[in-house]
């Protein structure tokens, strides 16, 4: 038994030193899974881009339960992976536990702020991207009424809504924005049936462009918008392809860029809070062959102009989460 233990310890030590020498980065996907057509897949694409460009290798794991968060973090840290990138705010607590135990390992968390000396917290300026799609919605609307459908009623989603309304009002001060939240429990992220009903209700009130920030509920929103012949706007990843010709654009969060940059930095990853906004390509709107006919050159020009002004700091989009208040309705 003692012999066995010694052997095991030696083996573990060997593995540890070998891992440390290689210092492969690691990527942990959240419960949504690697191919979720959204957030996690975007992270995967970023990691793949890094791997192709550098010829490097990275370790990865797809979580299947809440309990594995801390376990996965510790395993990669013990293994000598550096940096360790994780996708999703849900890692917040686990990372705050684990990070102090491995001061020599760098961590990067997306969509959440963890204040530890060896953690990079990447947050996105969703309000800036939402402002741009709000402008496009106002320009594409014939009725002067547009809609917003949020998932669960939390400050992050109000941040989307507030940026969107500001963008709409910037184009058309008289435009009306109908806002609905799907619910107040996590079930609100996965209720496409209710998403559909809200969409139909908004359409009957005159909305002809509807932006969703509602996760799985949003599939119902985009579906109903397409069925009823109005335009939808996707969120997080490029959802234009879901209903070609019926999705005006998508507000994209470049999670792939965040992952790519963190992996590129390697051991020298700068810690602290990193804000991904329009200025550094963190958010934006999607333009591809599926919505090329919907976005006129004039529309694109004015949105790009606004994007430049936001990026340079000339135009300030109010962030709902800065004071839990929105200046426009």
């Amino acid at each position: 038994m003692t012999m066995m233990k010694t052997l095991l310890t030696a083996a573990a030590g060997l593995a540890l030193s070998a891992g440390a020498a290689l210092a492969e980065p690691a990527l942990i996907f959240d419960l949504g899974g690697k191919f979720d057509k959204s957030f996690n897949e975007s992270a995967y694409n970023g990691a793949q881009r890094w791997a192709e460009e550098t010829g490097g290798d990275y370790a990865e794991v797809e979580l299947t339960s809440e309990a594995q968060r801390e376990q996965a973090l510790r395993r990669f840290a013990e293994n000598g992976n550096n940096p360790i990138v994780m996708t999703g705010f849900a890692f917040g607590n686990a990372l705050a536990e684990v990070a102090p135990d491995y001061p020599d390992t760098k961590f990067a968390i997306i969509d959440m702020v963890v204040e530890e000396p060896n953690v990079r917290s990447v947050v996105f300026n969703e309000h800036e991207g939402s402002y741009l799609v709000g402008m496009m919605a106002a320009m594409a609307s014939d009725s002067g009424t547009v809609g917003f459908i949020g998932g669960m009623d939390i400050p992050l989603i109000r941040k989307f809504a507030c940026g969107y309304v500001q963008g709409v009002k910037a184009v058309d001060g008289d435009a009306e924005v109908i806002q609905n939240m799907t619910g107040t429990t996590p079930a609100a992220w996965n209720d496409p049936v209710k998403g559909s009903e809200i969409t139909k209700a908004q359409i009957s009130q005159g909305a002809d462009v509807i932006y969703h920030a509602a996760g799985g509920t949003g599939t119902g929103v985009l579906q109903s918008a397409a069925d009823e012949g109005v335009l939808g706007i996707g969120v997080d990843s490029n959802q234009n392809y879901l209903h070609p010709g019926d999705v005006l654009t998508s507000m994209v969060k470049r999670v792939d860029n965040a992952v790519y940059e963190a992996m590129m930095a390697g051991d020298d990853l700068e810690t602290g809070i990193v804000v991904m906004g329009l200025a550094n390509g963190g958010v934006g709107y999607a333009l591809d062959e599926h919505n090329a006919d919907l976005v006129s050159e004039e529309m694109q020009a004015s949105v790009d102009a606004a994007a430049d002004r936001i990026a340079s700091g000339d135009l300030k989009v109010h962030d709902y989460m800065s004071d839990n208040n929105c200046p426009v309705e």
Partner: peptide
């Protein structure tokens, strides 16, 4: 009815209580 009548596909936990 939920998946093929009201919606056009299945989404996880779509019965939502």
């Amino acid at each position: 009815y939920l998946a093929t009548g009201l919606q056009a596909g299945f989404v996880k936990d779509m019965t939502a209580g």
